[in-house]
Design a protein around this nucleic acid. Structure first.
Lengths: 338, 338
DNA sequence: CTGAAAGCGCTAACAA
DNA sequence: TTGTTAGCGCTTTCAG
C-alpha cells in the first residue's frame, strides 16, 4: 500500500499538500490538485485510518452497543441494527457492533478508553441504565435508542409508547371491544427496567381507563412457551377479554399459534394487536398480525443523526425525539364478538 | 485520558517498560511490574488503539461483510452475526459490521486500503463471488461463511448442504413419502449464484434419485407472497407431492400459512421440512417446523477461528470445514398420507 | 498558494 | 532486567 509521501513524490509536491487536497482545508490550485489526484489514483492510495486517527482528532467509527440477550434476537431488532449501520455509512462512519452484556461497565470503560470510537449509540436502554453514567464520566459523545427515566440532558430517540398504546386501544374500542388482555414481558424483564414494557403498560392502562374498558395484564417470557402460557392465562379468565395486546414477537406468535390449536378463531373470537413488531415478523404468523410500531429505520436514522451531531458539535444541547407509531391493519383484528 | 508516558512517570520507569508489562514481550521484575500496574490502575489507563495500531502491526478489528439484501434479514441470519461477534470478542477482536452491497468492489478496496481491519469475514457468498479477488489482490487475510465454486485455496466454513439434503430426503423417505416439492429461492437469486440454493437443489435431487422418489422444484421470492405463490404452484400439481422442502424462512412461513387457509392439514396431508432455518423462526410458525440446519454458532465460530488463524499465522494453508446439519423434528412432518 | 516540521501515543530494535 | 530512540503515516501550525 502506498503512503502519502509516495503520492507526494509522484506528484512533485510536499506531503502536506497531499493531505490538504484530501481534507480540502486549504485552497489548492487546480493544477496541483489535479496532479495529486492523478498520483493518488495511480498508486490507488487510501489514507491509513490509524495514522489519521492518531494525528487528527477525527475517529471515523461509531460503536453500536447491542447487549447480548438470553431471549435471542428477532428480525425486528435486527432491522434497527441494519438501519443504524446504513445511516452511519451514509454519514461517513464505520459501525462497530459491540455486544458485551449490559452490565459490563468495565468493558465499556475500556472500549471508550481505547479511544477507538468517536461515539457510542446505546440500544436496549433500561429505565435506570448504568451505561449513561459511564459514558458521561468518560466524556465521550453518546446517544441512545430508548431512554432512561432520568433523561433530561440526554440525546435519545425513542418510540412514542404513549401514542402507540392509545392508538391500539382506541382502535380496539372503535371495533367494540370492552375488555383486553395485555401480554407483557416477564417479571424479571420488568424488574430489570425494560422501558418499552413499562411505558407501554402505562399507556395502555391510561387509554383503557379513558375508554372505560377493562384490562388484565399477563407477563410471559418472549418465546413460544411464553406464548402458550399466555393462552393458558387467557383461557382461565372469566369473562374472557375479546382483544389481546402483545409486546414481543416470539411470545405473540406463540400465543396466536396456541390459540389456533385451541380452536379459538382470530379475529372472529379474539382480536390481536402486536406492538413494536416489524412487518416481516408480522407476516410470518397466521393470521398476519395487525401491528402498531414505529418505522424501524426512522428510529435508527434519527438516533445516528443525533449521535453524529453530538460528535461533530453541529448542534447545541440534547436531541430528544419520540417517533410516532404506524398502525398496519392485517388479519388479526376485527369487530368484537357479541 | 492518561497516556503511557504519564503512567511511566508515576511508576518511575521508562515508557517502554510500561509497554512491556502490557504486552508481556519482555520479562519484568515483579517489583516494577507491580508498580506499573498500580500506576495504570490509578490513572485508569487504557492504551490508545490508534497509536497501537500505527506503531505495531496488530490491528484488533475484524470486518464482517454482511451485504445488504432487498429481502431483509431473518433472525436466523442475525444469529450468524451475533455468534461471530461473540467469538471475535472472545479472541480479543472488535467487530466492524460492514454492509455495503456485494457488488461494491471499490468500497471494499477502500475499506481494506484504510488498513483499519486486520481481516475480513465474508457472508452471503455466491458461487462466483467477486469479493475474493479483491481481497486476494489486497493481500489481506480473509475467510468466509459459505464458499464459491473455485475454493481450492480459500479458508471457509460452510454448511454441509449435501448432507442436509440427504438427511431431509431420507427422513421423508422413511416416512413413506414418494414425491416432494422443493421451494427454491427466486430465479434471480439462483442466477446471482446463491450457493446454498444451488448446492441444496443438487443434494436433494441426488438424494431423491437414490431413493427412487420424484421431485418438483418451484422458485419463489423469500416473503409471504412468495410462500403463497408456492402454495398455488403446489395446488396445480397432479398428483400432488406429499412433502415439501423449503429453503427460506419467510417463504416457508408464507407457504405453511397459506396451506392452512386452504384447509390443507400439515402434517396429515402434507409434510414440510425447512432447511437452514433457526429454532426461533421455526417456532414462530404453526405447526412448528421440522428443520434441518447447522447450529448457527458453530458455523460462525469456526469461521472466525479460521480468519484469526490466518491473521495470526498460527496455521499453514487454508482451513476448510463443512458443518454437519442437525435435524430437529417438530410438528410439520409425519407419515405420508395414503 | 505551498513547504517544512512538530507532534499524536505507541512498538520494537538497539543498547546497556 | 531496564532505558533510549527511531519510526508508524498522518494533521496542522508555523513560515514563507
Amino acid at each position: 500500500m502506498a503512503t502519502r509521501d509516495e503520492v507526494a513524490r509522484l506528484a512533485g509536491v510536499s506531503p502536506s499538500t497531499v493531505s490538504y487536497v484530501i481534507s480540502g482545508r486549504r485552497t489548492i490550485s487546480e493544477a496541483t490538485k489535479a496532479r495529486v489526484l492523478a498520483a493518488m489514483r495511480e498508486l490507488s492510495y487510501t489514507p491509513d485510518a490509524f495514522a489519521q486517527g492518531l494525528a487528527g482528532s477525527r475517529r471515523g467509527i461509531l460503536a453500536l452497543h447491542f447487549p447480548t440477550s438470553v431471549d435471542g434476537y428477532s428480525s425486528t431488532e435486527f432491522e434497527y441494527v441494519t438501519a443504524a449501520m446504513e445511516r452511519a455509512r451514509a454519514l461517513g462512519y464505520h459501525m462497530l457492533l459491540w455486544s458485551n452484556p449490559m452490565t459490563d461497565v468495565m468493558g465499556l470503560e475500556s472500549l471508550v478508553g481505547q479511544k477507538l470510537v468517536a461515539g457510542v449509540l446505546l440500544m436496549e436502554v433500561s429505565i435506570n441504565d448504568p451505561r449513561f453514567d459511564v459514558l458521561r464520566r468518560a466524556g465521550i459523545p453518546f446517544a441512545s435508542i430508548g431512554r432512561p427515566d432520568d433523561s433530561a440532558d440526554l440525546s435519545y430517540v425513542d418510540n412514542d409508547f404513549a401514542e402507540a398504546g392509545r392508538m391500539a386501544v382506541d382502535y380496539l374500542a372503535g371495533l367494540g371491544h370492552q375488555s383486553i388482555m395485555y401480554i407483557n414481558v416477564s417479571v424479571e424483564d420488568q424488574d430489570a427496567g425494560n422501558g418499552p414494557a413499562i411505558r407501554t403498560a402505562r399507556a395502555i392502562s391510561d387509554a383503557v381507563r379513558v375508554q372505560g374498558m377493562s384490562m388484565r395484564e399477563v407477563p410471559v417470557e418472549n418465546n413460544a412457551r411464553g406464548g402458550r402460557a399466555a393462552l393458558d392465562a387467557y383461557l382461565d379468565l372469566h369473562p374472557r377479554p375479546t382483544a389481546v395486546l402483545a409486546l414481543k414477537e416470539f411470545a405473540t406468535a406463540g400465543f396466536v399459534n396456541a390459540a389456533g390449536m385451541a380452536s379459538l378463531r382470530i379475529p372472529e373470537n379474539l382480536s390481536v394487536i402486536a406492538l413494536g413488531v416489524g412487518d416481516r415478523s408480522a407476516e410470518m404468523v397466521a393470521p398476519a398480525l395487525t401491528t402498531v410500531a414505529p418505522p424501524g429505520e426512522v428510529v435508527s436514522h434519527a438516533a445516528v443523526d443525533a449521535l453524529v451531531q453530538k460528535i461533530e458539535g453541529s448542534s447545541q444541547g440534547a436531541v430528544q425525539q419520540l417517533i410516532a407509531p404506524l398502525m398496519t391493519v392485517r388479519d388479526s383484528t376485527g369487530p368484537a364478538p357479541r
